[in-house]
Design a protein around this nucleic acid. Structure first.
Lengths: 192, 192
DNA sequence: CGGTTCTTTGATGGCCATCAACGCTTGTGG
DNA sequence: CCACAAGCGTTGATGGCCATCAAAGAACCG
């Protein structure tokens, strides 16, 4: 049984906890959060290389996870919507592996990470570094640009009901294709 | 403190545990394994859709993780080398999300999964489903085929010292490009 | 030797990145 | 109100990279 400190909230007491954790959350399960301020559209949450302290849970809005490449190009690793976690990929580091920027007005909770949710650090490291598909894999290969855009739209729609807040250029930065190709793909799909 | 059952080994007692877990392993840390038989080159460990019971840790050899697409095509999601885990992506399912096939003679340990290594199932599910980059992201986009093959080779070399056991066609199935393109990329790299 | 698997090389065509330009919308200041 | 700028969306023309098809060498094994 954990006790929440000042400014901290146990997820078990949050009426919308189910949206974040999908299951019911038991009091004392170790999920303590600190509610954060509302961030404005376009605001940078943190930059790549900034000091990392704890993961965040998105509770409203949409956050772009951004990889800043050596040549200055920006690649959008993921779009995070309510209920999803950002910053976990930097868990075993001291600095953020990616940056994060709000695409719309958003709110977040900070996960109190000191709780003994995970008993052994080695397993968590293994999970985060080995269990996932390595960069370089191409699960969608063989798909045309149109089919990849369709898959992206369907994936986003399956995760949230909100309208897509990102620009065509940002979709291109995420899927690795030119903005014009995204536009032509949407036209071929006949719908937005 | 856990006690190992019949045929079970505590990783703390294994002389090569450091190779699997990188850190030193404390007795009773929850890492109990069962040593498995040696699998032959080309042998299928399990097929996509087969019943899942526990993850495996590769201790020697090389295992291909295979996604069987609806059209019958096979996409190689990852190549696992000693110290890496397979099957974790199926943790919250009853069946295997991917198949697995040995590329060379390999040995594996079965992770005893009942140990209370992770205290809360919700967090692990969140880790596996939300923390990783979604399918569709293209972290390598903008790279030519030659540069992607170079990145693949460097990644594999950084993970193991063994010579690359996979064929050009399998590299192509992994990177999403034609076998001929892999060959031409290797020629341009001037070395194997 | 014949058979199989893997590798390599060449020719051709299509998809998509790139460049260029324009319309549309919004915001800002004169 | 109008002019101007900035951001976003859209369309067209062009060229290059790579998938595809075809075929042949190379290594291995019965």
């Amino acid at each position: 049984m954990h006790r929440a400190g000042s400014n901290e909230v146990d997820c078990a007491e949050c009426p919308s906890a189910r949206r974040c954790w999908r299951d019911e959350v038991n009091s004392g399960a170790g999920f303590l959060v600190r509610r954060l301020r509302h961030v404005e559209a376009g605001e940078t949450l943190f930059r790549q290389g900034a000091g990392f302290d704890a993961p965040l849970i998105v509770t409203s809005g949409c956050i772009a996870i951004i990889d800043l490449l050596p040549d200055g190009e920006e690649r959008i690793v993921a779009f995070r919507v309510p209920g999803e976690i950002i910053g976990l990929e930097s868990w075993d580091r001291r600095v953020h592996r990616f940056g994060a920027r709000a695409l719309t007005g958003s709110t977040l909770c900070r996960l109190r990470w000191t709780a003994g949710v995970v008993r052994n650090a080695s397993l968590l490291r293994a999970l985060l570094t080995k269990a996932t598909a390595p960069a370089g894999a191409a699960p969608w290969a063989g798909l045309s640009a149109v089919e990849r855009v369709r898959a992206f739209v369907e994936d986003f729609r399956s995760r949230t009901d909100q309208p897509m807040p990102m620009t065509r250029a940002q979709i291109g930065q995420h899927l690795g294709m030119a903005e014009e190709t995204v536009v032509r793909a949407f036209k071929q799909l006949g719908r937005h």
